[in-house]
Design a binder for these strands. Structure first.
Lengths: 185, 185
DNA sequence: GTCTATAATATGATAGAC
DNA sequence: GTCTATCATATTATAGAC
């Protein structure tokens, strides 16, 4: 399952022959030894995804409460922690990206358990940070901007293999927090 | 090429057998008639990508200048137009997403011709909009936030098949422009 | 639990008739 | 330019010995 996870993350399950999994696991490729462990590749994929879901926990908001400080600094710390959490979800995110069309129900599950919940938590975080007028005018839209920026930054970094525009995670989250708590005189 | 484009966008070229392309093009599946038109699937993919690149033009910034208005409204109009442009790039984006590992040089090309250039244009657009102190503190980081939010919103909408958090494109770009030009008293 | 062997199917690709 | 026919190879999957 460990080697399968890596292969599925990099190339997708569909593009990973069973023989390749066998070879990576130290089995004789083409021997069919794989089938003594899993019914077929689908079963392995399901097991791998389920293990990842369990590993990262069903509690993406565990870190929300124990952030200290207030205002912009508090939000920046929160966002930096969220970005690390996205990193923990990396394998899961990449696999779900590969499987996006084969399993529309998975996308729906992601939306309900992560995306929508993330917006709710985002609105809360913005309130705790002491929102600016620009945020208060449409809190949900502001939280959507925040979430979109985070996932967009994460995916761009993954895709390019480097920080977009050479803006590192600390600098990015600081800028995002600044924009969301902006109080120009 | 039309049917291949659609198939490649939805499932990726690797997951699209030549027989499927033949069938979709009205040819007898498995007949090999495909090979009278293209050397192999790779050649078709290259032709499809090249045609898309030509179609969308090498000028993503054509609409930059002729935006009227100023400040927040000007930026909102610009961002709304940019989001439409991402829509025009949809096929290309989705194909490049499928091929992300098979062609790292393509990712590099995307970064240099689109991502990095987009940041430069973003900085310009922010200056024209009359930047807030939060933007001026780190213009490149602010532009990165702007770009990340746009691509994150676009990809999330594609992935889920609906606007994230039910925030439609007008509302999203308005909120983003508001945050980037925020001038609370 | 792994191996050799093998079969069934899917896929990529070519030859030659029309 | 399309078809039938055909191959070679890749892939999935199973059977049975060890």
């Amino acid at each position: 399952m460990d080697v399968a996870l890596e292969l599925f993350v990099e190339r997708g399950a569909a593009a990973t022959p069973v023989t390749t999994i066998e070879a990576a696991a130290g089995l004789s490729p083409g021997s069919g030894s794989f089938y003594r462990h899993f019914k077929d590749k689908e079963a392995l994929l399901a097991a791998v995804v389920e293990r990842e879901v369990t590993r990262v926990g069903k509690d993406p908001d565990a870190q929300v409460e124990n952030t200290d400080g207030a205002g912009e600094q508090r939000l920046a710390t929160q966002l930096r922690s969220d970005l690390d959490y996205l990193g923990e979800l990396r394998s899961l995110i990449m696999i779900l990206l590969w499987e996006r069309n084969r399993a529309p129900e998975l996308a729906e599950w992601v939306r309900k358990t992560s995306a929508d919940r993330g917006i709710e938590l985002g609105v809360e975080a913005l309130r705790l940070a002491g929102p600016s007028a620009a945020v208060e005018e449409d809190e949900v839209a502001a939280a959507t901007v925040m979430q979109s920026a985070m996932i967009g930054y994460f995916l761009a970094a993954e895709y390019f293999g480097a920080s977009p525009a050479d803006v590192d995670p600390d600098r990015f989250t600081a800028a995002l927090a600044r924009l969301l708590t902006n109080r120009d005189a």
